[in-house]
Amino acid sequence: MRAKIVAGNWKMNNNAGETQALAQGLVDAISNTDAQVVIAPTAVNLANAVTLTENSPIEVAAQNMHFADSGAYTGEISADMLQSIGVQTVILGHSERRAYFGEDDALLEKKVNQALAKGMQVIFCFGEELEERQADRHFEVVGSQLKNALYKLDAAAWKQIVLAYEPVWAIGTGETASPEQAQEMHAFIRKSLTEAYDAELANGVSILYGGSVKPANAKEIFSKPDVDGGLIGGASLKVADFKAIVDSI
Protein backbone atom coordinates (compact mmCIF):
# COMPACT_ATOMS: atom_id res chain seq x y z
CA MET A 1 0.00 0.00 0.00
CA ARG A 2 1.31 3.46 -0.89
CA ALA A 3 2.17 5.82 1.95
CA LYS A 4 -0.27 8.66 2.55
CA ILE A 5 1.75 11.82 3.14
CA VAL A 6 1.00 15.40 4.12
CA ALA A 7 4.06 17.66 3.98
CA GLY A 8 4.16 21.31 4.98
CA ASN A 9 6.63 23.54 3.13
CA TRP A 10 7.09 26.59 5.36
CA LYS A 11 9.24 28.37 2.74
CA MET A 12 10.98 31.55 4.00
CA ASN A 13 8.66 32.06 6.95
CA ASN A 14 8.97 31.95 10.76
CA ASN A 15 11.86 33.08 12.91
CA ALA A 16 13.14 30.92 15.77
CA GLY A 17 10.34 31.78 18.17
CA GLU A 18 7.63 31.43 15.56
CA THR A 19 9.06 28.08 14.46
CA GLN A 20 9.04 26.83 18.03
CA ALA A 21 5.44 27.94 18.55
CA LEU A 22 4.18 26.40 15.32
CA ALA A 23 6.09 23.15 15.70
CA GLN A 24 4.96 22.74 19.31
CA GLY A 25 1.39 23.52 18.30
CA LEU A 26 1.49 20.81 15.66
CA VAL A 27 3.03 18.30 18.06
CA ASP A 28 0.22 18.98 20.51
CA ALA A 29 -2.46 18.78 17.81
CA ILE A 30 -1.25 15.81 15.77
CA SER A 31 -0.71 12.79 17.98
CA ASN A 32 -2.45 9.95 16.18
CA THR A 33 -2.52 9.65 12.40
CA ASP A 34 -1.99 6.97 9.79
CA ALA A 35 -0.43 9.53 7.44
CA GLN A 36 3.25 10.40 7.23
CA VAL A 37 3.38 14.02 8.40
CA VAL A 38 6.33 16.19 7.38
CA ILE A 39 7.22 19.81 8.09
CA ALA A 40 9.96 21.75 6.31
CA PRO A 41 11.09 24.84 8.24
CA THR A 42 13.75 27.19 6.98
CA ALA A 43 17.32 25.92 7.32
CA VAL A 44 18.33 27.91 10.41
CA ASN A 45 15.42 26.40 12.37
CA LEU A 46 15.78 22.76 11.32
CA ALA A 47 17.74 21.58 14.36
CA ASN A 48 15.26 23.09 16.80
CA ALA A 49 12.34 21.59 14.87
CA VAL A 50 13.95 18.14 15.01
CA THR A 51 14.26 18.43 18.80
CA LEU A 52 10.69 19.66 19.22
CA THR A 53 9.18 16.84 17.14
CA GLU A 54 11.35 13.93 18.28
CA ASN A 55 8.59 12.27 20.35
CA SER A 56 5.83 12.84 17.82
CA PRO A 57 4.74 11.35 14.47
CA ILE A 58 5.97 14.51 12.71
CA GLU A 59 9.13 14.32 10.61
CA VAL A 60 11.32 17.27 9.64
CA ALA A 61 12.51 17.88 6.07
CA ALA A 62 14.88 20.41 4.51
CA GLN A 63 13.71 22.69 1.72
CA ASN A 64 16.91 22.30 -0.30
CA MET A 65 20.45 20.87 -0.27
CA HIS A 66 23.61 20.96 -2.38
CA PHE A 67 24.86 18.14 -4.59
CA ALA A 68 28.44 18.16 -3.22
CA ASP A 69 29.74 16.58 -0.02
CA SER A 70 31.54 19.80 0.93
CA GLY A 71 33.55 22.61 -0.62
CA ALA A 72 33.60 26.26 -1.62
CA TYR A 73 29.83 26.68 -1.99
CA THR A 74 29.11 29.68 0.19
CA GLY A 75 25.67 29.63 1.73
CA GLU A 76 24.90 26.03 0.77
CA ILE A 77 24.04 23.03 2.96
CA SER A 78 25.17 19.45 2.41
CA ALA A 79 23.40 16.17 2.99
CA ASP A 80 25.88 15.31 5.75
CA MET A 81 25.07 18.58 7.53
CA LEU A 82 21.36 17.81 7.39
CA GLN A 83 21.79 14.26 8.59
CA SER A 84 24.05 15.38 11.43
CA ILE A 85 21.06 17.21 12.98
CA GLY A 86 18.60 14.40 12.30
CA VAL A 87 17.08 15.49 8.98
CA GLN A 88 16.59 12.56 6.59
CA THR A 89 14.18 14.06 4.04
CA VAL A 90 14.69 16.87 1.53
CA ILE A 91 12.41 18.72 -0.88
CA LEU A 92 14.04 19.13 -4.29
CA GLY A 93 12.87 20.76 -7.52
CA HIS A 94 10.29 23.14 -6.10
CA SER A 95 9.06 25.57 -8.74
CA GLU A 96 10.34 28.53 -6.74
CA ARG A 97 13.85 27.04 -6.76
CA ARG A 98 13.53 26.48 -10.49
CA ALA A 99 12.18 29.97 -11.20
CA TYR A 100 14.14 32.17 -8.80
CA PHE A 101 17.44 30.29 -8.57
CA GLY A 102 17.74 28.79 -12.03
CA GLU A 103 17.62 25.15 -10.99
CA ASP A 104 17.20 23.02 -14.11
CA ASP A 105 16.73 19.30 -14.69
CA ALA A 106 20.48 18.63 -14.96
CA LEU A 107 21.21 20.26 -11.60
CA LEU A 108 18.27 18.54 -9.96
CA GLU A 109 19.46 15.18 -11.24
CA LYS A 110 22.75 15.76 -9.40
CA LYS A 111 20.96 16.81 -6.22
CA VAL A 112 18.65 13.79 -6.33
CA ASN A 113 21.56 11.43 -6.89
CA GLN A 114 23.43 12.89 -3.92
CA ALA A 115 20.44 12.65 -1.60
CA LEU A 116 19.78 9.05 -2.61
CA ALA A 117 23.43 8.10 -2.21
CA LYS A 118 23.24 9.42 1.35
CA GLY A 119 20.14 7.35 2.06
CA MET A 120 17.78 10.31 2.28
CA GLN A 121 14.14 10.45 1.27
CA VAL A 122 13.46 12.89 -1.59
CA ILE A 123 10.22 14.78 -2.15
CA PHE A 124 10.68 15.70 -5.82
CA CYS A 125 8.60 18.59 -7.15
CA PHE A 126 7.63 19.34 -10.73
CA GLY A 127 4.80 20.92 -12.70
CA GLU A 128 3.83 23.15 -15.59
CA GLU A 129 3.52 26.92 -15.93
CA LEU A 130 0.17 28.49 -16.83
CA GLU A 131 1.15 29.19 -20.43
CA GLU A 132 2.24 25.56 -20.84
CA ARG A 133 -1.13 24.31 -19.67
CA GLN A 134 -2.95 26.82 -21.87
CA ALA A 135 -0.91 25.55 -24.81
CA ASP A 136 -1.95 21.98 -23.92
CA ARG A 137 1.68 21.06 -23.21
CA HIS A 138 1.26 20.13 -19.54
CA PHE A 139 1.71 16.40 -20.06
CA GLU A 140 4.75 16.98 -22.25
CA VAL A 141 6.37 19.30 -19.70
CA VAL A 142 5.75 17.05 -16.72
CA GLY A 143 6.92 13.97 -18.61
CA SER A 144 10.13 15.75 -19.58
CA GLN A 145 10.84 16.93 -16.03
CA LEU A 146 10.47 13.39 -14.71
CA LYS A 147 12.48 11.77 -17.48
CA ASN A 148 15.38 14.21 -17.35
CA ALA A 149 15.88 14.18 -13.58
CA LEU A 150 14.73 10.75 -12.47
CA TYR A 151 14.37 8.10 -15.15
CA LYS A 152 18.04 7.14 -15.18
CA LEU A 153 17.69 5.85 -11.62
CA ASP A 154 17.72 2.17 -10.78
CA ALA A 155 14.33 0.81 -9.80
CA ALA A 156 15.48 0.26 -6.21
CA ALA A 157 16.10 4.00 -5.77
CA TRP A 158 12.38 4.74 -6.08
CA LYS A 159 11.80 3.41 -2.56
CA GLN A 160 13.35 6.70 -1.41
CA ILE A 161 11.35 9.00 -3.71
CA VAL A 162 8.03 10.75 -3.23
CA LEU A 163 6.69 12.74 -6.18
CA ALA A 164 4.92 16.08 -5.74
CA TYR A 165 3.00 17.46 -8.70
CA GLU A 166 2.59 21.20 -8.37
CA PRO A 167 0.93 23.12 -11.20
CA VAL A 168 2.93 26.35 -10.98
CA TRP A 169 -0.13 28.44 -11.76
CA ALA A 170 -1.80 27.17 -8.58
CA ILE A 171 1.02 27.85 -6.08
CA GLY A 172 0.23 30.72 -3.77
CA THR A 173 -2.34 32.14 -6.19
CA GLY A 174 -5.48 30.83 -4.56
CA GLU A 175 -6.16 28.93 -7.77
CA THR A 176 -6.34 25.17 -7.46
CA ALA A 177 -6.43 22.46 -10.06
CA SER A 178 -9.81 20.76 -9.85
CA PRO A 179 -9.79 17.32 -8.24
CA GLU A 180 -10.39 15.94 -11.73
CA GLN A 181 -7.41 17.83 -13.16
CA ALA A 182 -5.22 16.61 -10.30
CA GLN A 183 -6.34 13.02 -10.83
CA GLU A 184 -5.81 13.27 -14.59
CA MET A 185 -2.20 14.39 -14.13
CA HIS A 186 -1.46 11.92 -11.34
CA ALA A 187 -2.79 9.09 -13.51
CA PHE A 188 -0.55 10.31 -16.34
CA ILE A 189 2.46 10.34 -13.99
CA ARG A 190 1.75 6.78 -12.86
CA LYS A 191 1.38 5.70 -16.50
CA SER A 192 4.70 7.36 -17.31
CA LEU A 193 6.36 5.48 -14.45
CA THR A 194 4.85 2.24 -15.68
CA GLU A 195 6.25 2.80 -19.15
CA ALA A 196 9.70 3.77 -17.81
CA TYR A 197 9.87 0.94 -15.27
CA ASP A 198 6.87 -1.30 -14.56
CA ALA A 199 3.40 -1.24 -13.02
CA GLU A 200 4.53 -2.62 -9.67
CA LEU A 201 6.98 0.21 -9.18
CA ALA A 202 4.52 2.82 -10.44
CA ASN A 203 1.81 1.64 -8.07
CA GLY A 204 4.20 1.83 -5.12
CA VAL A 205 5.25 5.47 -5.54
CA SER A 206 3.37 8.09 -3.54
CA ILE A 207 2.34 11.11 -5.63
CA LEU A 208 1.37 14.26 -3.76
CA TYR A 209 -0.58 17.23 -5.06
CA GLY A 210 0.56 20.75 -4.23
CA GLY A 211 -1.08 24.02 -5.17
CA SER A 212 -3.31 25.99 -2.78
CA VAL A 213 -4.56 22.95 -0.87
CA LYS A 214 -6.81 24.11 1.99
CA PRO A 215 -9.03 22.43 4.59
CA ALA A 216 -12.02 23.17 2.37
CA ASN A 217 -10.75 21.27 -0.68
CA ALA A 218 -8.26 18.75 0.74
CA LYS A 219 -10.68 15.87 1.33
CA GLU A 220 -12.05 15.93 -2.21
CA ILE A 221 -8.57 16.17 -3.77
CA PHE A 222 -7.18 13.40 -1.55
CA SER A 223 -10.13 11.14 -2.38
CA LYS A 224 -8.91 10.67 -5.95
CA PRO A 225 -7.33 7.23 -6.50
CA ASP A 226 -3.91 8.43 -7.67
CA VAL A 227 -3.53 11.32 -5.20
CA ASP A 228 -1.65 10.13 -2.13
CA GLY A 229 -1.53 13.35 -0.12
CA GLY A 230 -0.32 16.89 -0.46
CA LEU A 231 2.62 19.26 -0.31
CA ILE A 232 1.09 22.19 1.51
CA GLY A 233 2.29 25.80 1.43
CA GLY A 234 0.40 28.61 3.12
CA ALA A 235 -2.05 26.39 4.98
CA SER A 236 0.86 24.62 6.71
CA LEU A 237 1.65 27.81 8.64
CA LYS A 238 -1.52 27.57 10.77
CA VAL A 239 -1.94 24.73 13.25
CA ALA A 240 -5.70 24.37 12.78
CA ASP A 241 -5.52 24.41 8.96
CA PHE A 242 -2.65 21.94 8.71
CA LYS A 243 -4.26 19.57 11.23
CA ALA A 244 -7.52 19.70 9.29
CA ILE A 245 -5.67 18.79 6.10
CA VAL A 246 -3.87 15.91 7.84
CA ASP A 247 -7.20 14.70 9.25
CA SER A 248 -8.81 14.86 5.80
CA ILE A 249 -6.51 12.20 4.41
Rank of each mutant, 00 (worst) to 15 (best):
M1H: 13
K4H: 12
K4V: 14
K4M: 12
V6Y: 06
N13Y: 15
T19I: 09
Q20I: 14
L22R: 10
G25D: 10
D28A: 15
I30A: 08
N45T: 03
L46E: 03
A47V: 00
A49G: 01
V50W: 05
T51E: 14
T51I: 11
L52E: 07
T53Q: 01
N55M: 01
N55I: 00
E59N: 13
V60S: 10
V60K: 11
A62P: 00
M65S: 06
F67Y: 10
A68P: 00
S70C: 03
A72Q: 03
G75W: 07
G75I: 05
A79E: 07
Q83K: 15
S84N: 12
S84L: 08
Q88Y: 09
V90R: 04
V90Y: 01
R97K: 07
R97P: 04
F101C: 11
G102R: 05
G102P: 01
A106T: 12
A106E: 14
A106P: 01
K111W: 05
N113T: 14
Q114N: 03
A115S: 09
K118C: 13
G119Y: 02
Q121C: 08
V122M: 07
F124K: 03
C125E: 03
E129M: 12
L130D: 12
A135W: 03
G143Y: 06
G143I: 02
S144W: 10
S144F: 11
L146N: 10
K147N: 13
N148Y: 03
L150F: 04
L150K: 04
K152L: 08
L153C: 08
D154Q: 11
A157H: 10
K159D: 14
Q160D: 12
I161L: 08
V162P: 02
L163P: 01
A164I: 10
V168N: 01
V168T: 01
A170Y: 06
I171Y: 05
I171Q: 07
I171C: 08
T173D: 13
T176V: 12
T176G: 05
P179R: 13
A182N: 09
Q183M: 06
H186S: 12
A187V: 13
K191V: 15
K191Q: 15
S192F: 02
S192V: 00
S192Q: 13
T194Q: 11
Y197M: 00
A199C: 01
N203F: 05
I207A: 12
Y209L: 06
G210P: 00
G210Y: 03
G211Q: 07
S212Q: 08
V213N: 01
P215M: 02
F222I: 05
S223T: 12
S223Y: 07
K224N: 07
K224H: 08
P225W: 15
P225R: 14
P225S: 14
V227A: 11
V227M: 06
G230I: 09
I232M: 11
G233D: 04
G234C: 09
V239T: 10
D241Q: 09
I249K: 00
